[in-house]
Simulated scan of single mutants.
Amino acid sequence: MKQRTIAKSVEIVGIGLHKGVPVKMKLEPLEEDAGIIFYRVDAGITIPLCIENVVDTKMATVIGKDGIVISTIEHLLSAVYAYGIDNLRVVIDNDEVPVLDGSSSGYCMLIEEAGIKELNKSKKAIKVKKEVEITTEDGKRVTLKPSNRIIYDFQIAFDHPSIGEQNFHFDYSINEYKENISRARTFGFLHEVQYLRSIGLAQGGSMENAIVLDQSKVLNPEGLRFDDEFVRHKILDAIGDMALLGYTMVGEYDAVAGSHHLNHLLTKELYKDASNYEIIDLEEASEEAEVFELAYSKVEV
């Protein structure tokens, strides 16, 4: 199996969730072994996608360098990661990736518009060899476990009649991602949105790009896309956050009330000990390569 990039450059214009300002973003193909690179064209700063460049994880995953940041990268990265894109340049003229409709389905369409190009060098993946885990005193947990497949399990519980307890199991393929994960939107509570706006955040948030709830119900007139849309979006976010590993992960991600912050700590924990993981060449690792071939073969892009 070979590394992937996009076949041609594509552009999109949208608004940022937190600043609410227009953002122009362009995705460009890159050569083998280049990785995922962000470029702030307005500041002339290149920010490679890596754990070391994460500067904030409170409300979103934010990378930065020399005081220049790019925020809310997780939805774009979720789609890029799901489509197996190894090399890509993201050119952006502001400090936040466009939120689109609050899901990653728009980015899936953008990638399919660009097409996927296979490169000459073999694709590499990171295989989890030992279980690593981050836990908190209030019962939150994120875990990576060894597996020959790519699995995401997530559990949430909210004291809200529209959410309650939700679980979702995602066995990776592009087709399953498009149908069951990419369309799930980010969500927030009305009182939280009001507070965030008071401190200069969520300025671009609306019912056009998020599920908004009051104390008893979903306020969006169209309702939910899935009964369990909330936990599906948590998996969407987690897939984007795992892109910070720099390789597609072979293993099982399992979370109870996980977050961007815990996901960041988990990626750091995995890399703390070289015995926790193995970088595998998918030209040589036939069993793992078969998993990817099956996952990628179900959709033509």
Rank of each mutant, 00 (worst) to 15 (best):
Q3A: 10
R4M: 02
G14F: 14
G20P: 03
P22R: 12
V23I: 15
D33C: 06
D33G: 08
A34K: 07
G35M: 01
Y39H: 13
R40D: 02
A43Q: 15
I47W: 03
C50T: 13
E52W: 09
V55C: 14
M59S: 04
M59V: 14
D66R: 15
T72S: 13
I73D: 13
H75A: 07
L77Q: 02
S78V: 12
S78A: 15
L88Q: 00
V90I: 15
D95H: 07
V97D: 00
V99A: 05
V99R: 05
L100I: 15
G102V: 01
S105N: 10
G106H: 14
C108L: 06
E112I: 07
K130A: 10
V132T: 10
T135I: 14
R141D: 03
L144P: 00
K145S: 13
P146A: 11
Y152V: 09
D159P: 01
H160R: 01
P161D: 14
S162H: 05
S162C: 07
I163W: 06
E165C: 08
Y172W: 15
I174S: 06
I174R: 15
I174D: 04
E179T: 07
N180W: 07
I181F: 12
S182N: 00
A184R: 03
F187L: 10
L190N: 04
E192L: 08
E192A: 09
Q194F: 02
L196K: 03
A202I: 04
Q203I: 09
G204P: 07
E208H: 12
Q215R: 14
S216E: 15
V218M: 07
L219A: 09
E222V: 11
D228V: 02
F230E: 04
R232D: 00
H233C: 08
L236N: 04
G240I: 07
A243V: 09
A243F: 08
V250I: 15
G258F: 10
S259F: 06
K268C: 06
K268I: 05
E269L: 12
E269T: 11
D273E: 10
Y277D: 11
Y277Q: 09
D281C: 12
E283A: 15
E283C: 11
E290M: 12
Y296I: 10
E300Q: 03
V301G: 01
